[in-house]
């Protein structure tokens, strides 16, 4: 009995070491993504400054969080005519910054090919995290949270 156990010990020890090494590697792979670069910070600062201007349009339902990870003017009638140009400008600027943000995060983590996955992840989080009253694009179209 003892001889059998002794015989099994070595491979199982090797396996335990392998499992440890690989799960450590797994933990590494699941470590945080780097979002602390000058380019990313410049983008988030610009988005933060723009956010106060966009908030009333999120709340009125004029602008919604699209499934694409962009902003969309979903109800222009909610915007007074003189303001429409301003809203369109804000949306275009925000979408340009979001696109740059997704690209920069992928690049900062040495995987430019992750850009589309990062966009999809952000799209889902923007929709999930949107406060009550905002409009978001779900699987079955636009809904008010």
């Amino acid at each position: 009995m003892n001889r059998v156990r002794g015989h099994l010990e070595k491979p199982s020890r090797i396996l335990a070491a392998l499992v440890f090494a690989l799960t450590t590697g797994l933990a590494f792979a699941q470590a945080n993504l780097d979002i602390d670069t000058p380019a990313i910070r410049a983008l988030t600062d610009a988005m933060k400054a723009r956010h106060t201007e966009l908030t009333p349009f999120y709340e009125s339902g004029a602008v919604g969080q699209a499934a694409s990870g962009n902003l969309v003017l979903r109800d222009a009638a909610q915007v007074a005519l003189p303001q429409r140009g301003r809203v369109n400008g804000l949306i275009a600027a925000e979408n340009a910054d979001r696109a740059a943000l997704y690209r920069e995060i992928a690049r900062a983590n040495n995987h430019p090919e992750w850009e589309a996955d990062i966009r999809a992840t952000f799209a889902a989080r923007f929709i999930e995290r949107a406060p009550q009253g905002w409009w978001v694009e779900g699987a079955n179209g636009w809904v008010r949270k």
């Binding site: 993504l33 988030t44 943000l101 992750w114």
Partner: peptide, 29 residues
């Protein structure tokens, strides 16, 4: 096990979600 690790290295979905949440916290306050 190596195959599992390879899949995870391909796109770290959980880490990306955390990164998104950090950005959203910052931008939306």
């Amino acid at each position: 096990l190596a195959a599992c690790v390879t899949i995870n290295i391909y796109f770290p979905a959980a880490a990306a979600e955390r990164a998104a949440d950090r950005v959203i916290d910052e931008v939306w306050q």
